[in-house]
Design a protein around this nucleic acid. Sequence first.
DNA 1: CAGATTTTGGCAATCGGTTGTCAAGCCGGT
DNA 2: ACCGGCTTGACAACCGATTGCCAAAATCTG
Lengths: 339, 339
Amino acid sequence: MATQPVAAGRPATIHDIAALCGVAASTVSRALANPDRVNIRTRERIQAAAVELNYTPNSQAKALSSGRTGAVGVLVPDITNPFYFDLIRGTQLQLKAAGYTQLLVDTEESDEVEASTLEQLRKSADGVIVAASRLNDEALAAAAARMPMVTVNRDVDGVPAVIIDTPSAMPQALDHLISLGHTSVAYVSGPAVSQSSARRWAALSAAAESRGVDVRIIGPFAPKTQSGAAAADAAVHSGVTACIVFNDLIAIGMLQRLRERGLRVPEDMSIVGCDDIFGADFCNPPLTTMSSPIEQAGRVAVSMLLAQLNPLAGGGNRSRSVMPTHLTVRGSTGPASPN
Amino acid sequence: MATQPVAAGRPATIHDIAALCGVAASTVSRALANPDRVNIRTRERIQAAAVELNYTPNSQAKALSSGRTGAVGVLVPDITNPFYFDLIRGTQLQLKAAGYTQLLVDTEESDEVEASTLEQLRKSADGVIVAASRLNDEALAAAAARMPMVTVNRDVDGVPAVIIDTPSAMPQALDHLISLGHTSVAYVSGPAVSQSSARRWAALSAAAESRGVDVRIIGPFAPKTQSGAAAADAAVHSGVTACIVFNDLIAIGMLQRLRERGLRVPEDMSIVGCDDIFGADFCNPPLTTMSSPIEQAGRVAVSMLLAQLNPLAGGGNRSRSVMPTHLTVRGSTGPASPN
DNA sequence: CAGATTTTGGCAATCGGTTGTCAAGCCGGT
DNA sequence: ACCGGCTTGACAACCGATTGCCAAAATCTG
């Protein structure tokens, strides 16, 4: 009757196809999943019927019987942090390309939410990508032992990871400040549980020592623009002329606060951010920051996870991938004030 | 042996509990889902066993037999557009609170991707929230007939919607510009298929007519900062002294382009954005824009969808919810230049 | 205390697939 | 023409829950 491909009331099942072709449901299943196990004529009949009925396999049922869900969980501490937008977009694109569904969860910066989400995902996802985990190494390693996992910006023995190598750009940032005449610098630190923050501080203080520059640490601060106010006040109070900040969100908040207080950037204080997030190029002044290919990091994380899921598909699965980082100089850094 | 709650190799099933308690699996199912149908002593035994085995129901299996998946799809045209961050966070929070899982999909501004995603989601989600749909009314209504749906910023007969009422702030924005002496204004339009853009233009041109002001439309432009360059050039060429822009992304892009061309904002050109996204408050100059409670819109959309899913839980389900909007004046608007 | 009524809990079918097993059918080799 | 080997496709069990139905047990009624 209808020329269009049957907009039936209920989605077609494998049984509808079987009935239409006069074969058993299992034959249909095989014809679709494992074509060479079925006679080519039968197979073509079945495939034609599948198209005609507009058949799409029911993913729930498939998951139940096969054990694979075709979904991957992506855990981020805070969806509204722009840093994760690009990461999420990277994972989303790569997962879709591979035919997987992305389950995005905001763990609200909480290790408990993170842990319970991981437990839940264990049944409803084939694997997880965990960005900036708030769990301790032990818990994370235990979770990774239970299901395929790739971490982002988190190094734990035995857990494949994508590391955005901001620490390597720290000496570069410091040299940039030194070349501008700064000799007293503060590191504005992120959350205490953030391994990224710790690594950045370690790299920075090592570089400072080898160069004989005074670098102190202040914080910790939550990774939000609102924290920037307290950070700016603390930086001013500490008497430094330049700050290297855990991330761009805090840095942008500092910019705003310094302006409120009538201090000029970079004349009175130079600021270097981290991540080069959305907004870093158009804030006032534009932020000097450490840039990295975040979206690409998301894609790499997915590739590494998929390599774990289908070990056959070759390409020895690396367990650690480091993304390069470089300093992008904009307007928030300048010569140290003479006083 | 282990004092901890059994970190067994395989997640516990309803059958494990049944075996442990010496009852049938169905009794366990009832005890957990429908407690008063089971003897209190048996029930407590079962519940204790469930806790001890660290039981979590398998959502796939539950979905298969009950028909409900416990998941809700959220479709946005572009994950990296900051406008959607707050929306996504709103839906995420509300869905989690109601025990649902969020399936986030980026439809890449494509009606085809959107349509195929909806078809796919029909089996794997209980309902969908569609933000800024690129589908035509007919296709959208058809999809809504097949599964529970709530749209955001899209009005289609018979489909419940959350509308962020930016059009109502248009007269306010225009009056603001008029009060600053502007008499020649351009509307920088968004995607041709965006109903939001059309509604904003309609409201603006109506207000302009009643006030006797010249307002022309330029565009369409893609909702990205990159489009701002072309938009700024077109605006300058058209000779207007002020622009009301489809959204903040384009507006911020215009700000950058105007600066590049050596034009001052607001002295040479006033800019009014739309949405008050992340970044609108710290760009240079800070953007005058139409603000609205986006995260709340996400929460409302979820509530409306859940009302459709559980019609019992009272609260006559409204089919349309309008979110208020107001003008936020910042630094990107100022007096019209005298020439 | 018998009979009627209500609880209570087990059996089995079902959801939509996947997969192991096995009989039938086909082929060529001798 | 007979036999072994390989292909093909049907049957049925199974994944982990939900749910209708019914029998046994417990409670109430007169």
